[in-house]
Amino acid sequence: MTTTKQRMLTGNKAMAEAIAIEMERNPDVFVLGEDVGKYGGIFGSTQGLIDRFGEKRVIDTPISETAFIGAAIGAAAEGMRPIVELMFVDFFGVCMDQIYNHMAKIPYMSGGNVKLPMVLMTAVGGGYSDAAQHSQTLYATFAHLPGMKVVAPSTPYDLKGMMASAIRDDNPVVFMFHKSLQGLGWMDPLDAAVGEVPEGEYTVPLGKAKVVREGKDVTIVGLQMTMHYALEAAAKLQEEGIEAEVIDLRSLAPLDRDTIIESVKKTHRLVVVDEDYLSYGMTAEVSASVAESALYELEAPIRRIAIPDVPIPYNRKLEQYVLPGAQRIYDEVIQLMNE
């Protein structure tokens, strides 16, 4: 029996704690975005910060994403370290020029002479009937475009540690947090949204995947909700005598191909699961990387599970039908093992 007392936090509190620590460490760090002040962020990512740091460093903005994300870029170029929140990733549409033509390209276009040490944090994911304009992850949309680090942590521990790394990074980092993993009182309560988080400062590196469950029979790659579904499926597969290795990707760009390939060399089977659209997405990138570097290690074709190239429907059953889930992963692995 363990006697060590674990400190458990929800995802949102872990994130807010990382931001608070970095704001203490460095006066150049500040937060801006819609409802990040008194409200504490619609998904709780800035909870308590305004009380501690005041409205000069935790700035509620108008609904003007182009202007406030653009302003974060301008401030970052001056050496500030802004953390700017795009409330839902789906709202990227109104400000993608600033994000992609400017934030992501200025460091490169300036030959590395202009640094943009900023974090664009944004809520992703569906599963609660918020329909087509508020449920996307858009992982691949961002990861496809060079010039931004794109991370998507899956646990409170990583949310805190990777947020610290993102703030300290001299490059623009798109920090995607999953709504369902924030541990908010008004969403489906998930065990995965609460986890051990040490006090004080620590960092978790960006660009590194993590083997979260070891196994010898099949590798399942996922991130955020799909990683948790993969763990759920793996527990059930164990009862069938199948040992699945589960990789939490954690970062989309840079993508940690080595960890995936090393795992496939051990298991010789691969299932990639994504809560994003199927075509041209993360599942394709991971599959192609394995095909390029470890094709002959595979004993069966790769299987991909993702949203089947349709916008996300509102109706709860239709939404569940298109989203990946533990059962779907389990079924695919069972079929794969019989090939």
Partner: peptide, 25 residues
């Protein structure tokens, strides 16, 4: 919309009505 749109995404072309979930769009 056959259940695909929901409360923020109502479309009734018969009376030229539409709505959406993105502010200002």
């Amino acid at each position: 919309s056959k259940g695909k749109g929901g409360h923020m995404h109502l479309f009734d072309p018969a009376v030229k009505f539409s709505c959406g979930g993105i502010v200002g769009a």
